[in-house]
Amino acid sequence: MLTPYLAMFLDGRGLNSVEIGQLLALITLTRILGPNLWANLADRSGKSLRILQIGAALALASFFVIFIADGFWGLTLCFGLIMMFWTAIMPQMEVITLNSVAGDAHKYSRIRLWGSLGFILLTISAGRLIDWFGTEVLLVICLALLAALLLVSTRLREPEQLPDNSPHTGSIWSKLKSPVFLGFILALCLLQVGFGPYNSFFTLFMKDLGYSGMQTGLLLSLGVLAEILIFLKAGRLIQRFGIKWMLLISLALTVVRWALLAHFAHLPWVLIATQCIHAASFGLTHATAIQFIHRYFGRRYQSRGQALYVSLAGGLGGAVGNFGAGLLWQQGQGATQAFLAAAMVVGVSLVVILLIPSRHLECASEPAR
């Protein structure tokens, strides 16, 4: 919940754009170590739900420190600690969900949209609360959400462990060295690099353009609404057109999205259009990636597979993107250059996917026999 407004929160705490970019990059690096550590425990124990509950409890406990933390390093250490525990939660949510629906892409997408609905409600509400009470209100919201997550997790049950019928064999290292996986993860990593200016500074960008917190919240919610609509169809689209075509279309639209923000963000209809493209930039790419990873690694390595995706794409790619965005942003004066750089990076990602032979990429998306 804090992520969309984190730049505004840090700006309110007195950090400049370079410091914000560096802080976001440093805490994002915890997504490299954290997911793999927790996933290794989950795979060895077979207790994904218990790992999720431990992560939620530790994240809640560590969040209290932010109320008294101050300065660049104090805030960096606090957010890094919280992120380390948060990385125990997200991959296990994916594993539990996919096991519960037996890997069915359509059912997964329908469940995933409920998270998007919640995000819409909270984003709009948080935007209004920021207008009324300032950015510090975000801490109270996040604390309440973490407490609710911990409470709800105690009511869940560990899904039944079904036998692994995946056709893929071999050690996890052989899977990691595969050209298909290397190309796939490179492309997704570059996509996350391209998200750097958006993830780091979009809310500040809207503030500089004269939009209120409520209006920014509505724009963010429009992007998530587009996510919901694509999640309803993502499973069928992946099954019909395959992973490669879904990624190519999504990446091409993302290039257009960042290019439009670079040159025409002052036009309201451009902001609306680019937020609608979020359906492809995030929604469709995420659903496609999750399916690829789940089926490629099989049940034996599923937690570590999801963790590798989070750490390499979200962690490494996100850290590089946040750091680069911080250097280019220059208190908003470098917004055009930052979004143009993002468009070029995603363009390289598009070329990487284009170079992977369809038969190699699609084999991972075939149902297990």
Rank of each mutant, 00 (worst) to 15 (best):
A338Q: 07
A25G: 09
Q22S: 14
W86S: 05
F282P: 10
W329D: 01
L260T: 00
G314R: 00
A7R: 01
L229K: 12
V346M: 08
P4S: 01
S200V: 03
P167M: 01
I293H: 05
L350R: 06
N199R: 00
Q330E: 10
L350S: 08
L156G: 00
A307M: 12
A39N: 05
V18H: 09
L247E: 05
R44E: 10
C276E: 01
A325F: 06
L151C: 14
E362S: 04
V137N: 04
T203L: 08
L151A: 15
I89N: 05
F205E: 01
Q306Y: 10
S174K: 12
V352K: 05
H263L: 11
A59P: 05
L10W: 07
I68E: 06
N322C: 14
M344R: 03
H266Q: 07
L10S: 11
S250Y: 07
W132P: 00
L2M: 14
S358T: 09
T30P: 12
W173S: 13
W329M: 01
G71V: 14
L10N: 06
S166L: 12
L261Y: 10
S349D: 02
Q215G: 02
K207V: 03
F323N: 08
T3A: 14
F9D: 09
V152K: 12
F323S: 06
G315K: 11
Y296G: 05
V310M: 12
G103L: 09
P159H: 07
F231T: 06
M83R: 10
V95P: 07
K47Q: 13
I89S: 03
I228V: 15
L316V: 07
F339D: 02
S178C: 02
G71F: 08
P163F: 14
H360N: 12
T123C: 12
L354E: 00
P197D: 02
T274A: 03
H360S: 11
L15Q: 11
A319N: 03
L2V: 15
A368E: 05
L237M: 06
F119Y: 15
F205Y: 02
Q92T: 09
I20W: 06
I238F: 08
L186E: 07
G12C: 03
G118H: 07
V224W: 05
H106R: 11
V193R: 03
L117C: 11
L271D: 04
Q92E: 09
V351E: 02
I356P: 13
M83A: 14
L77I: 15
G134Y: 08
W173L: 13
L29G: 09
F241N: 03
L261F: 15
N165F: 11
L229W: 13
I353W: 04
G332R: 01
W114L: 13
E227T: 07
V352A: 10
L2F: 15
G196T: 07
A325H: 05
G315I: 07
F202E: 03
C276W: 06
E19P: 04
S221C: 02
G347F: 10
A364D: 01
L176W: 15
C142N: 14
S358N: 10
F64G: 10
A25W: 03
L350F: 15
A56T: 11
A273G: 06
R369M: 00
H263I: 11
V352Q: 08
N36V: 14
P167N: 01
Q302T: 15
K233T: 13
E94Y: 05
P367E: 09
A341I: 04
L156V: 02
V348A: 13
S200G: 06
Q192H: 12
A126K: 04
L121V: 15
P197E: 02
G21M: 04
K233F: 13
